[in-house]
Simulated scan of single mutants.
Amino acid sequence: MIRRFPAFRAIVTREVLRFVHQRERFLAALVRPLVWLLVFAAGFRAALGLSIIPPYETYITYETYITPGLCGMILLFNGMQTSLSLVYDREMGSMRLLLTAPLPRWFLLFSKLCGATFIGILQCYAFLVIAGLFGIDHPPLGYLTILPALILAGLMLGALGLAISSFIKQLENFAGVMNFVIFPMFFLSSALYPLWKMKESSELLYWICAVNPFTHAVELIRFALYVNLSPIALLWTLVAGGLFTALALWGYDPARGMIRKRG
């Protein structure tokens, strides 16, 4: 494993440098959640009253409630951005060179996944700092305890992006597939409203939200931000991450690619 570290560092560094050179990507990653936080939340504050639910011990503002969900939004869009970059690299031929390196394919994909997750975590912390400047405070220790939750959620959503990229063959098809994945996952979750409110309006939508992996990623972040743990959210995030990773490895399996070409 130590001998593979230079390759791991090179792949992660490449992802970070690509992100640094794309300043618009960083700004876009912050603009999306800030628009929800500063614009939409102002309109929804009066319409969506919130009761005291775990992990909160008192009544909170709507802006405070959606902050963990917006961190999840950042990780979700970052995972899809990674998927886009993989499709682009495949069309340009650089992905083929990477996957033909004398290293296990799972290691190459894991390195790519770690690089994307690291970038997503940086974006989340930048967003939390800006949110703090607008008066949305959280427990000081929560900024530390949220890190493992961001890592697990980022890996899970990044693995989803890897799995999707293995089935998208042309860059032109990316936008449609992303809209089919991102918006249902985001809006059918607890990112913007608690599940009990969804249950009041529709039992079916409640159960869809309850089994949505993104819901549990958001709840894992929410509880961690308040120095707490949701065992159910942790379990679902780990299970979903494992399933998405297995699907990505299957999608990038060279033997499967040979069979498809022959067919």
Rank of each mutant, 00 (worst) to 15 (best):
L195Y: 00
P139D: 10
G158H: 02
S190A: 11
C209I: 09
A131V: 15
E172N: 09
V177A: 04
L171K: 13
G154S: 08
F134H: 01
L192P: 00
N173A: 11
L171S: 08
C124E: 04
S166I: 14
F167V: 14
A126F: 05
L171F: 14
T215A: 09
A131P: 07
S166K: 14
T215E: 08
L144P: 04
F187V: 11
L155S: 00
L204Y: 04
N212Q: 14
F183N: 08
K199D: 03
G132A: 11
G154K: 06
F134T: 13
V129K: 00
F127C: 04
S201E: 06
L141K: 15
P213V: 06
A131S: 15
Y193G: 02
E203A: 11
E200L: 06
E172Q: 11
D137V: 14
A217T: 07
S190N: 13
I168M: 09
L157F: 12
S165Q: 05
D137W: 15
L128Q: 13
F214R: 14
G135F: 03
L141S: 14
S190G: 07
P148S: 08
H138K: 07
W207T: 03
V211G: 04
P194C: 05
V218K: 04
G158W: 03
A210M: 06
M178S: 05
L160A: 12
P184A: 02
M185W: 04
F187M: 12
F174W: 15
S165V: 01
F174S: 12
A159K: 06
G176N: 13
P140A: 15
L122H: 01
I164M: 12
V181A: 03
V218A: 03
Q170F: 04
W207I: 05
F127Q: 02
K199Y: 05
F127T: 03
Y125F: 15
L141D: 13
N212Y: 06
L144C: 09
A210Y: 10
P213C: 13
M178W: 03
M198G: 04
S165T: 02
I208M: 04
A149C: 08
A163K: 12
G142L: 10
N173D: 12
P148D: 06
Y125S: 08
A175N: 12
L162G: 02
